[in-house]
Nucleic acid binder design. Structure first.
Lengths: 373, 373
DNA sequence: CTGAAAGCGCTTACAG
DNA sequence: CTGAAAGCGCTTACAG
């Protein structure tokens, strides 16, 4: 309960403790190693003085003098505030938080909502960057689908420490990230379908241009090569799943791998047309749904280790903060949990046996492990 | 695209622009008033140098030297991250954001979720405060139901600028807030019921101890005095609305004012018992529901000016930041929109006319205006 | 084991 | 109209 006008400083504490200001600094930041450099008695005296004066510390000064703030920023290209789509992002945040808590660092949310609304008035990340406000935090965790390449490039050029949750690219630079291995997961899904006897397999991606779409596409192509199945690339929009169905049926395609929202509406469309799943058509879901649809369908597909991506990103960031990132150690892909369930089955007319499923035991078990690319 | 190892400083900019460091500072912070103190030509030269060097500014230094960061903090005692209850809080945040955007200040979210989970590891606001991290922002907007009095007292004692969204009390100190006038709104609701001929009126509050409950209770008591109705104070829990109904029916009470969640379940209970609303029972809702129940019921009751509370709080905070708050100007209550709809009607057996409703024309119009207490 | 001193990158009077 | 200087509150070598 200080009655002074302005906040007490270390000098104030030092005065009432009868030591020098530098000693106060020592006592306050004493890591285990420096601990022995102070008498326990003076340390206690100083702590008492801290209480007495109501000293709080001045982060700005601390930071300026070269110390860390122990604050990590979180910037999201998606609206963080409650919102339909945000259920998808919640697990990421939980992971980030849990990990931060474990390391005793605080989290600061840089709000980007200017960005996600109308676009008026703000440019999101770049705004924060340009004004130097990003440096309120030692480094930053980024996530969200609508990231901008030039943002990342700018951050990289300025040597600002950050880690993206999800694989991202920037022009001519190595973006640090902790992502999910969509490519491998998609490979396994397509192989699973081929094993079930499907000869013609379709792919529908909601965001084919996006990194997450590119990865799935790459996995699809690879698996098609390996399995010798006939591919059908569909122009994927959630709105026109009817057209997708027509295309598939017209070409004799009996299985499809699709991003979650497309898969869900496609399934409903198919059922509405009297098709039965998986007897007439197998559908596999390439990821977790953005918006939980409350369905209890036993989807075949893979799920994204969102929590682990969050914790992993924080770990990587803290690591980079301690010692500069070495190239090749900045990009990590986590394994997705792949599972076969009730929306995929043997191709119509084929006699794929139960044994077919045993080809990828690992994927069905869904172990999560790191993969450095 | 600087290739230097560390971030460029004003000194670097000054060197390449051929001016002094202080001049760079001037040029960069030139408010309209100081604008005339620089040649347009040198200003341009400096801005060019800023681009060239990739200067970003150092907020810590800026703050330490006495300048503002132009960053406002937002601390919420509720989970900000997507959550059932958060729909209730969204409008507050929208208001806060909109206003901040208008004043060109950025918003920082101090995450408090440590707090809302298990309580392990963190104490929320006090954590931020003690480590001095609150000062990353010039001041702070607070909200959420689970605020701690001692937190506010501590902030006040340290002269940290903040404004609470919602009326809050602290021991022996004047907490700055922009709240909603629950007392007046409740008065109007009860008067409305009395006007409809109800002689016995019940009150059920979910959080009677909380400031928001105390205010409603005060309004209820006042209106009971004025109208001469017989009060019935019910022990309000959402879980036992059945018991509430019994109490009411047993005492011949024909109308009730209740906080939103109680009102909603009470209504369902009543309907289930074959009661008709409002013919047998009038129910008025004292506020907005925390969790939208998706009902399309035309509730009689009042709604909380959440968006305006958000904008008002930011305005007050910015005002206090410019010039220290004068006592008496720190507590504002906004008017709630009161409306009579289909869950309230004439008391059974009474002959209250339509004219009864005209007694409080203002409240029915629901104008929002400030009220300094 | 503790203190005196330099310096972090700014802003803000104060000189010229 | 621009520059030199002090100072914000810390941390971190460097002396004693």
């Amino acid at each position: 309960m200080s009655t002074e006008r302005s906040r007490p400083t270390q000098a104030d504490v030092a005065r009432t403790a009868g030591v020098s200001q530098a000693t106060v600094s020592m006592a306050l930041n004493a890591g285990p190693e420096a601990m022995g450099r102070l008498t326990e008695e003076t340390r206690q005296r100083i702590l008492a003085a801290v209480e007495e004066t109501g000293y709080w510390g001045n982060l700005a000064a601390k930071q300026l003098a070269g110390g860390r703030t122990s604050v990590l920023g979180v910037f999201t290209y998606e609206p963080v505030f409650p919102h339909a789509a945000s259920d998808f992002y919640y697990p990421f945040l939980q992971g980030i938080e849990a990990e931060a808590l474990g390391h005793d660092v605080d989290l600061l949310l840089f709000t980007s909502s200017h960005n996600s609304r109308s676009g008026a008035g703000g440019e999101g990340l770049r705004d924060w960057a340009r004004r130097g406000r990003l440096h309120l935090a030692d480094g930053c965790i980024l996530f969200g689908r609508h990231s901008q390449r030039r943002d990342l490039a700018e951050l990289l050029a300025h040597d600002y420490p950050f880690v993206f949750v999800g694989r991202r690219e920037a022009d001519g630079a190595e973006v640090p990230y902790v992502g999910a291995d969509y490519e491998q997961a998609t490979v396994e899904i397509v192989e699973h379908l081929a094993d079930l006897g499907h000869q013609r397999i379709a792919l529908a991606l909601e965001f084919p241009e996006h990194e997450s779409g590119v990865d799935r596409r790459r996995g699809f192509d690879r698996a098609i090569q390996e399995t010798g199945a006939v591919p059908l690339i569909l122009d994927g929009t959630v709105e026109h799943t009817g057209a997708l169905l027509d295309d598939m049926l017209g070409t004799g395609t009996t299985a499809i791998a699709a991003t979650p929202d497309i898969a869900a509406t496609l399934r409903l469309d198919a059922l509405r047309r009297g098709l039965s799943i998986p007897a007439d058509l197998s559908i596999a879901r390439l990821g977790d749904p953005e918006k939980p649809d409350g369905s209890t369908v036993g989807w075949s597909g893979f799920s994204i280790p969102r929590h682990e991506m969050g914790t992993g990103a924080v770990q990587m960031l803290l690591r980079h903060l301690q010692s500069p990132a070495r190239p090749g150690e900045t990009q990590v892909l986590l394994r997705c949990e792949v599972r076969a369930s009730s929306t995929t089955g043997p191709a119509p007319g084929s006699k794929a046996s139960a044994a077919a499923r045993s080809r990828h035991p690992r994927s069905v078990l869904g172990t999560t492990q790191e993969n450095t690319r």
